[in-house]
């Protein structure tokens, strides 16, 4: 599903170079659920940005769903993000002036679906996250957990092969976080590959695999398979 080989990412500010990722390599199989952990500044977000084609990397090779995406144009990257990747952000990133229906509709419009198809998908995903009855509400009228569910619905609406979640429970209390994680796990069980950045070791354990990043590299003993998941894998 995702294959990164020796990815490097260097930020340059004048004469200062910051190596966010160094020879970073990672393979993620179809249907996998990978958690990515590491201390602040270790390169987790950079990795997520590159994986989601939000940023270009300096060096290396990246294949997504069998396609080399190392040198796609901006337009091609947008299309790949729209069709293959679903994003879930820490701050939900819902558009405050749009109701839930219109928020979920955003990526579908960029996809070019007709109105009927969009409506069907929106209703289905909002039903999945348990918010179908509130589709005319504004994000501000929902709790944090509900807003994150809408964000997940928005990510799911395009039926992506890969979901990238950036600290999806970072702004939620433990009860809401658990609900969101259960939803993400269910999505994974339904076949969607998930890569989740988190700093919470407990949440990381809910994934099939954990990748620990330190100083822009996958640290030693990098790939761990939590025992709790062995039985269900």
């Amino acid at each position: 599903m995702l294959s990164m080989q020796n990815i490097s990412m260097v930020y340059r500010a004048g004469l200062v170079e910051t190596h966010a990722l160094r020879n970073f390599s990672l393979e993620v199989e179809e249907g996998d659920f990978v958690s990515v952990t590491g201390p602040s500044g270790s390169g987790k977000t950079t990795f997520l940005n590159i994986a989601g084609l939000l940023e270009r990397f300096t060096d290396g090779r990246y294949e997504l769903d069998g396609r080399d995406v190392s040198s796609l144009s901006d337009k091609e990257s947008s299309a790949v993000r729209n069709e293959k990747i679903g994003f879930v952000f820490q701050s939900f990133n819902l558009i405050p002036d749009l109701n839930l229906f219109d928020n979920v509709d955003v990526p579908l419009r960029y996809r070019g679906f007709n109105a009927n198809e969009r409506k069907k998908r929106i209703e289905t995903v909002l039903e999945t996250v348990g918010l179908a009855s509130r589709m005319k509400h504004l994000p501000s009228q929902l709790s944090g957990g509900q807003q994150q569910r809408v964000a997940i619905a928005r990510a799911l609406a395009g039926k992506p092969r890969l979901m990238l979640a950036d600290e999806p429970t970072g702004n939620l209390d433990s009860k809401m976080a658990l609900g969101v994680m259960e939803l993400i796990s269910e999505i994974n069980r339904n076949g969607t590959t998930i890569i989740m950045v988190t700093h919470d070791p407990e949440l990381a354990k809910m994934a099939n695999r954990n990748v620990h990043i330190l100083d822009g590299r996958v640290s030693n003993g990098d790939i761990e398979v939590p025992l709790s998941k062995v039985a269900t894998a």
Partner: peptide, 8 residues
Amino acid sequence: TRRALGAT
């Protein structure tokens, strides 16, 4: 966010 969701 719109760009991330696929807007060109």
